[in-house]
């Protein structure tokens, strides 16, 4: 699994995707940061995550769209599936690699927190920031797992990317229609974290969504082996 993580992270940064993802994410974050912190004069850094979480809904597809679709298109899937690695470790390797890229992005964006601390003349709201960061990573996990699952269904990257974005957008707005949809919306589940509340049910829901889509991806790959 470690070999796959290493290679995948490397591939993200050998192609423009890694840089485009981190770059666009940081650019938009700094815009939000300027607007929210400077314009309104707020020092509540964790509130910024409301915006970056919405941003993630659009940009996550960059990381996930090629995960399995491009391997399938190039035929390199053969190399993975005929190696002695199990399908589970291949899927987990790719999942963790994408998560690593997001973690790198978050480490970069901690600069904003440092700036807030400088202006506030002291460390402010460290626990809230950390819990929100944790929640954000959970949200990212659910998103990656979902995008990965979509990517395993097609061999066309573009289709995988567009479908991922559309379905995530749908899940974003569904709770507006009826509270019954709250549970399938990762973004809705995330909403409590920036307020400093670590909800057990929210955490469990996000983790369940992650595990569900990882399992579905494994099943898709396994099934395809039998149906070729």
């Amino acid at each position: 699994m470690w070999a796959i993580i290493k290679k995948e992270v490397k591939t993200y940064f050998l192609s423009p995707i890694g840089y485009v993802f981190i770059g666009s994410f940081l650019l938009m974050s700094s815009f939000f940061f300027y607007q929210y912190i400077f314009y309104y004069g707020s020092v509540e850094y964790s509130y910024l995550f409301y915006y970056t979480a919405e941003l993630l809904t659009f940009t996550i597809a960059l990381l996930t769209m090629g995960m399995f679709s491009s391997e399938r298109k190039n035929g390199t899937e053969t190399l993975l599936l005929t190696s002695s690695r199990s399908i589970t470790s291949i899927v987990m390797g790719k999942f963790l690699a994408a998560l690593a890229v997001i973690l790198i992005t978050q480490i970069f964006s901690l600069i904003y927190y440092v700036i807030v601390c400088i202006f506030a003349k002291g460390i402010t709201g460290l626990t809230i920031t950390l819990t929100t960061l944790g929640g954000f990573m959970l949200l990212a996990m659910a998103y990656i797992a979902f995008g990965m699952f979509i990517s395993s269904l097609t061999e066309n990257q573009i289709i995988a990317g567009v479908v991922t974005i559309i379905l995530l957008l749908v899940s974003w707005f569904l709770p507006d229609l009826s509270p019954a949809f709250n549970i399938i919306s990762p973004l809705y589940q995330f909403q409590k974290y920036p307020g400093g509340v670590v909800g057990i049910s929210e955490t469990i829901t996000l983790l369940t969504q992650t595990i569900l889509f990882i399992l579905l991806t494994i099943i898709v790959l396994q099934r395809r082996k039998n149906l070729k």
Partner: peptide, 11 residues
């Protein structure tokens, strides 16, 4: 195994 299409990671 060397597949017919010689799939490789171009990058």
């Amino acid at each position: 195994y060397m597949p017919e299409t010689t799939p490789l990671y171009n990058e």
